[in-house]
Amino acid sequence: MTKINPFITSGYISAKYFCDRITETTTLTRYITNGNNVALISPRRLGKTGLIEHCFHQQQIREVYHTFLIDIYATKNFQEFVFELGKGILNGLKPRGRKAWELFLKCLSSLRTSISFDFSGNPSWNLEMGDIKAPAITLDEIFRYLEEADKPCLVSIDEFQVIAKYPEGDVEAILRTHIQHCSNAKFIYAGLQRHMMGEIFTSPSRPFYQSTAIMELSPINVDIYTEFIKRHFAENKKKIAVETIQEVYKRFEGITWYIQFMANSLYAMTAEGEECTVDKVNFAIENILSQLNFTYSSLLFQLPPKQKEVLIAICKEGKAQEITSSKFLKTYKLTASSVQGAIRGLLDKDFVTNELGVYSVYDKFFDIWLRKRIS
């Protein structure tokens, strides 16, 4: 049988390829199996979705609950939210057999005529957005299913903070009302942008105030990651120097996805019987950047001039604070008004992240590529 690269960069395979998070898995599992909704907050690419999938694969959840993973990152309004919620639930039910998904379709009166079936008789979510003509009614039907389902349900909504940007001002209140009255389902609200998630769940004026347990993810300890990577190399008759792993961890600030991606590349570069030494880290990064060069060049070209100037200034700073201060403005020949306008666009497009007032380039590979370009 063909060996797989043990460092998974997307999706979830099994506990064997999942690094640590023992405490977080226990805590999240305890919360959701004891009737709590949970807000799971962390910077992007730190492993929120992987942790949720890992929890959903625990025996006490897998055998008792229906589990649904909903990603609303690309949604722009209430209609698109309802579309993704319905699609995610149907896709989650299909592997569980006809009895499971038939009840869901029975509840979806407003969409039943739009659902098609494949040659095996399984339903397909081939709807167009316009098929959801009354999203409030469709949402009522979805929650009726969750309440009547033959098993208790766990629903994870990824990138939950985007609902705060919907043009409809009452989506939080609508969802909170439905969730409050749905005893057969519990929800995990996964999100980044700590200030936005914090406002949704900790502001007394917001509908979700004090309605959830709150968890924050931190980077996995470097020693734990070192043992995880060394073990997988050793199991496949390869070696990796401790300083190699520590260099990767330091360069990418312990962020899970980048460590996995780099470990994946370093593993692929190392033959059986060989040792992966620290000098291979830069070689692996150069290979990755060469593959991304066209994409990054296009992204930079498409940026408006002011946004490009502010992005480069933040990149040069590394960790930029007080970006409207006279010192920052003078150093990079910017004006306060141009920075204020540009930073909104950069945050919306995910070029830049803001954690507790500290701005940095969101994509670490893009940051390295840009530094090389402007140095």
Rank of each mutant, 00 (worst) to 15 (best):
K3C: 03
P6Q: 10
P6Y: 08
I8A: 06
Y12E: 03
S14N: 15
Y17K: 06
T23K: 15
L28W: 07
Y31S: 10
N37W: 01
P43Y: 00
R45A: 09
G47H: 07
H57L: 01
H66W: 10
T67S: 06
F78W: 07
E80S: 11
V82S: 06
L85R: 02
L85V: 14
N91G: 09
P95T: 09
A100P: 05
A100K: 01
S109F: 10
T113M: 09
T113V: 11
S120P: 00
N122Q: 14
P123M: 04
L127G: 00
L127P: 00
P135F: 06
L139I: 07
R144C: 06
E147K: 11
E148F: 06
A149I: 02
A149N: 05
I157C: 01
E168A: 14
E172V: 01
R176K: 14
I179W: 05
S183C: 02
G191I: 03
S203T: 13
Y209P: 01
Q210P: 00
Q210D: 14
I220G: 02
D223H: 12
F233C: 09
E235T: 07
K238C: 07
V248F: 04
T256W: 03
F261L: 15
E272V: 11
V281T: 12
N282Q: 13
A284S: 14
A284E: 07
S290R: 12
T295K: 15
Q307M: 12
I312T: 12
C315A: 15
N354Y: 05
E355V: 14
F366V: 04
W369C: 08
R371E: 09
R371V: 04
R371T: 11
